[in-house]
Design a protein around this nucleic acid. Structure first.
Length: 475
RNA sequence: GGCCCCUUCGUCUAGUGGUCCAGGACGUCUGGUUCUCAUCCAGAAAAUCGCGGGUUCGACUCCCGCAGGGGUCACCA
């Protein structure tokens, strides 16, 4: 496959959610797979909608996920600048070419007048076509009026790398504004210029643009530029309902997942398999595998719902696949405050015990506090326990005393602890559900914990016995 | 309303005329793994393949119609 030059061209109107960044991911995947380039371009031509700081926020999101770009914002490149607001002269030149060829004209109407045309069309239940109102003798363009493309309506058939063969009639082609009266170009115009100048081989974007593609096709012809490969992605849908994932319906900022301690490779895996699969039964992919196996042809045509459960499962699966060293490196910012005084070796042992129950790192404090801090005695743990609620304190106390003696005699290796605990089971003729629960609750004061012997071994003699004593005096 | 697109278990999907009374995964449920939670293992329930017509010996797969859903018809991208 020829090296692909793909691009991600967001507008700085806020944060990126999973739906938006999946588009970036697919474009990146293709560039990496073919040994091509991935370009990051900022489409900041709408000053009104621009949100301060979102350019940086978008870059942060891409950085976190490891979607690195070869040209574009921050780093520049052969076709700099990569920010459309700094390329106004370029668009003006290209627009002038169109004017010279008689393929663009000044729009003489006021916005109110155009709005009236639109209303009339709507009332007549007809699609609005500006070209039906194309002026006979448009005024000379002086830069203060919007400049419109003079279209050449005709039917089109084209191929989309994802959607397949598409077609539309001439009614899909209309005169649209290419330069606004404020001097800024519209997306419809400048993305075509930039993609051409930046030598993009593929234009990958989401579904809302399909209806405009005939217009773009018409413009490519007028500009006499070869059109790139088109690839249109379906939406990522909200968890319920039929609407696309959107900020106003609570879609999260991708960086929220970073803050909650999801692994970037898990997010990538999740996003990639939302609407794509390799045809095998493989579910878990590393980024490298994705680069190798991704293909536009296997992207679904229909929208896929965002499934939080699946994300959680996938995140846990990626966490489980990490070595302790890797896991530890990722866990740095998520430890409970009390862990500050403990050394790396201790924390790694703790991590080893919770790795298989961790779904994302923000869960770390809840899962591990008791390894760092004596928790207050919590009576509900006894009263709500299936087995223990049937026992009185007088029944529990001697068992815990015995357990204390047993544990005190141990060298606190997991094996020795296990062996002694098993002996105790026989001596007391208790079920593990009773005996182990008593010890577990006494030493952790938590509703759940890793296995008892493992937990005690990490806690150590001093802490274990201290907590048992505290429990004993509370009973 | 015109035009365009989409439609397989709750969800993500496999499936390109017979190997599919539809396979996998998430989730759910059941059981097991000496305690809890999780992991892991085993098993179960779960899709009349949107509906109706064709074509064919045979259709989830091809054709036609319909329905539902979505998109679009901005000096937003």
């Amino acid at each position: 496959m020829k090296p692909a030059r793909t691009r991600f061209a967001p507008s700085p109107t806020g944060f990126l959610h999973v739906g938006g960044i999946r588009t970036a991911l697919f474009a990146w995947l293709l560039a990496r797979q073919t040994g091509g380039q991935f370009i990051l371009r900022l489409e900041d031509t709408d000053k009104a909608r621009e949100v301060e700081g979102s350019g940086q926020h978008i870059m942060d999101s891409l950085h976190w996920l490891g979607l690195d770009w070869d040209e574009g914002l921050e780093i520049g490149g052969r076709f700099a600048p990569y920010q459309q607001s700094q390329r106004l002269d370029i668009y003006k030149q290209w627009a002038q070419k169109l004017v010279d060829k008689g393929r663009a004209y000044a729009d003489p109407y006021t916005q109110t007048e155009v709005e009236a045309f639109r209303e009339a069309a709507k009332a007549a239940k007809k699609p609005f076509l500006f070209r039906n109102h194309r002026p006979q003798n448009p005024p000379a363009w002086d830069g203060t009026q919007p400049l419109r493309f003079k279209s050449d309506p005709k039917p089109y058939e084209w191929h989309d790398a994802v959607m397949g063969d598409l077609s539309a009639g001439p009614e899909a082609v209309d005169d649209f504004i290419i330069l606004k009266s404020d001097g800024y170009p519209t997306y419809n115009f400048c993305h075509i210029i930039d993609d051409f100048l930046m030598e993009c081989t593929h234009v990958m974007r989401s579904q809302e643009f399909v209806a405009s593609i005939p217009k773009f096709l018409n413009l490519y012809e007028a500009l006499e530029i070869e059109r790139p490969i088109l690839a249109t992605f379906p939406y990522v849908m909200g968890p319920d309902g039929k609407k696309k994932l959107s900020k106003r319906d609570g879609a999260k900022d991708v960086l929220d997942y970073a803050r909650e301690g999801y692994l970037p490779e898990a997010m990538i895996n999740f996003m990639a398999t939302l609407g794509w699969n390799d045809g095998t039964e493989q579910e878990i992919f590393t980024p490298a595998e994705l680069i190798e196996k991704f293909s536009l042809e296997r992207v679904q045509k229909g929208g896929a719902h965002f499934d939080e459960q699946r994300l959680l499962w996938m995140s846990g699966a990626h966490i489980r696949a990490l070595s302790i060293g890797e896991l530890y490196a990722c866990s740095k910012e998520f430890w409970p405050a009390e862990a500050g005084g403990y050394d790396d070796a201790y924390k790694k042992r703790v991590l080893g015990l919770v790795q298989e129950r961790l779904k994302f790192f923000a869960e770390l404090p809840n899962l591990t506090v008791f390894f760092f801090k004596d928790l207050p005695v919590k009576s509900s743990l006894w009263t709500e326990h299936k087995q223990l609620k049937k026992l009185s304190n007088d029944e529990i106390k001697p068992l815990l005393e015995q357990a204390k003696a047993t544990i005190a005699a141990s060298d606190f290796s997991v094996d020795d602890l296990t062996a002694r605990l098993n002996e105790l089971l026989e001596q007391t003729v208790q079920k593990p559900a009773v005996l182990f629960s008593i010890i577990r609750i006494a030493t952790t004061q938590s509703p759940s914990s890793p296995g008892l012997a493992d937990t005690l071994a990490v806690l150590g003699r001093k802490v274990s016995l201290r907590r048992i004593d505290a429990m004993l005096s509370a009973l």
